[in-house]
């Protein structure tokens, strides 16, 4: 009798391993560029004759990753929450596990954390509040942290600090991003700072630290600077 169960188990194992081999693991790599060159953190980069900037933090949540052909979704990553921190190279790539026969021409994802997750209490993994992406005086995830220094910033330390988030109307800052893909292997996503920086008002709106309409506005500007490379 027991023998029979062992045989059954082996069959199931073989079946699943066969199924598994049909999956391919693809990587989505995130990076950023400034002056059309790959960004290095904590290094002053000239923007023009007079101004320079040093980016110290780019840290953000990517969630609900989907692959699509035109408008029909053909793959949706389960439990899809990823914290990308440019300071920590291992977080800059997401492994996506999907069936190898899938063909797609679009990738969709959210920049930030949805409102249901924001009210779900203590969560683990990338959503653990020890990751430094959670507001404490008023609850909610910080979707995007963008920090650095520039002589453009008219404040004491010439700093800018954008902590963008907010999950309640009218301050919901989460952004859905859709990018067209040329071929299925190209999953290098770039945050184009040459598009982003001219749209930020670094000289006086250089600190956003709570859910606000300003946070929504800057979140949109950032979402628009995501591109496939």
């Amino acid at each position: 009798m027991i023998n029979k169960y062992i045989k059954l188990c082996i069959c199931i194992l073989i079946f699943f391993s066969k199924l598994h081999s049909q999956d391919i693991i693809s990587k989505i790599n995130f990076d950023s560029s400034l002056n059309k060159i790959k960004l290095e953190l904590n290094k002053y980069i000239l923007l023009n004759k007079n101004d320079s900037i040093s980016i110290e933090t780019i840290k953000f949540y990517i969630s609900n990753i989907k692959l699509a052909i035109d408008d029909s979704i053909i793959f949706q990553e389960p439990n899809s929450y990823h914290l990308i921190d440019f300071e920590n190279i291992s977080t800059k790539s997401i492994s996506l596990n999907y069936h190898k026969n899938i063909i797609f021409n679009k990738i969709k994802f959210n920049l930030g954390i949805d409102s249901a997750t924001n009210v779900s209490g203590a969560l683990g993994g990338d959503l653990d509040p020890t990751k430094g992406m959670y507001w404490t005086w008023q609850n909610g995830y910080i979707n995007f942290k963008f920090e650095g220094k520039s002589n453009i910033c008219q404040n004491k330390n010439n700093e800018f600090q954008y902590h963008l988030g907010g999950y309640l109307y009218p301050n919901n800052s989460i952004q859905e991003i859709t990018l067209n893909i040329k071929n299925n292997k190209d999953l290098n996503i770039n945050i184009n700072l040459d598009n982003l920086l001219p749209n930020l008002n670094l000289s006086d709106k250089n600190h956003i630290m709570s859910p606000s309409l300003e946070s929504v506005k800057v979140s949109k500007i950032i979402a628009n600077s995501f591109e496939i490379k």
């Binding site: 924001n118 779900s120 209490g121 203590a122 509040p129 959670y134 404490t136 008023q138 609850n139 909610g140």
Partner: peptide, 8 residues
């Protein structure tokens, strides 16, 4: 009501 969940 700043806090939306007992856990937090």
């Amino acid at each position: 009501g700043a806090i939306n969940h007992l856990d937090m």
